[in-house]
Simulated scan of single mutants.
Amino acid sequence: MAQAATIAEIKSQTQTKMDQSIAALKNTLGKIRTGRANPGLLDTVHVDYYGSQVPIGQVANVSLLDARTLSVQPYEKGLAAKIEKAIRDSDLGVNPASMGDLIRVPMPPMSEERRRDMTKVVRHEGENAKVAIRNLRRDANEHVKKLVKDKSASEDEQKRAEGEIQKFTDKHINDIDALIHAKEQEIMAV
């Protein structure tokens, strides 16, 4: 954080950064595979497009056919084979099948062991997000203490600000716990 002039600015910046941490966690959790198909699963797959590697979303439309099948519709006719190869070579463990210029990507059901592994990954991501939130709290409290030390704020204002920053932290930690719990339920649902 740059030198914030007031306690209100510190609180505002901290809240914004905590919200960004939650958004980043949601994005990460969206890419973790569950038993269901999700177009975001293919975001990490890159296709050779005239000599450069581009994300699949830039050369094809990825959508859901049904709960367990993705459809990939290339924007150019000649790309279907390259896209199919890129998906097959990815570490997703899926086997795409071409139907003319449409590529179907069925999601195989996950084994019980794989589901447990995925919940561990989800918990790990949640723990990383909590660490980020706590680091933001620490940084904000240090900035408030510096304002008191520089005589820009009183000790009463410091106590109030630290209490409010703790409330932000608690709220965001609870949000993370809720996201993790929901994702674990989604993964373990057969």
Rank of each mutant, 00 (worst) to 15 (best):
A4E: 13
T6G: 13
T6P: 15
I7Q: 06
I10F: 07
S12L: 13
T16M: 00
M18Y: 08
S21W: 09
T28W: 01
G30T: 04
G30A: 05
K31G: 12
R33H: 02
T34H: 05
N38C: 00
P39V: 01
G40I: 00
L41Y: 15
D43C: 05
V45G: 10
V45C: 08
D48E: 10
G51I: 05
V54C: 04
V62I: 15
V62E: 04
S63P: 02
L65M: 11
L65V: 13
A67D: 15
K77N: 13
K85V: 07
K85D: 08
K85Q: 14
L92R: 12
V94I: 12
G100C: 04
L102A: 12
R104M: 15
V105L: 08
V105E: 10
M107V: 14
E113Q: 09
R116Y: 06
R116W: 04
V121I: 15
H124C: 00
G126V: 11
A129R: 06
A129I: 02
A132L: 15
A132R: 14
R138T: 06
D139L: 07
D139C: 08
H143F: 10
K145L: 01
K146H: 14
L147I: 11
A153S: 12
D156M: 05
E157H: 07
E162H: 04
G163N: 10
Q166S: 15
F168P: 00
T169Q: 02
H172D: 07
I173Q: 00
D175K: 02
A178K: 12
L179W: 00
H181N: 04
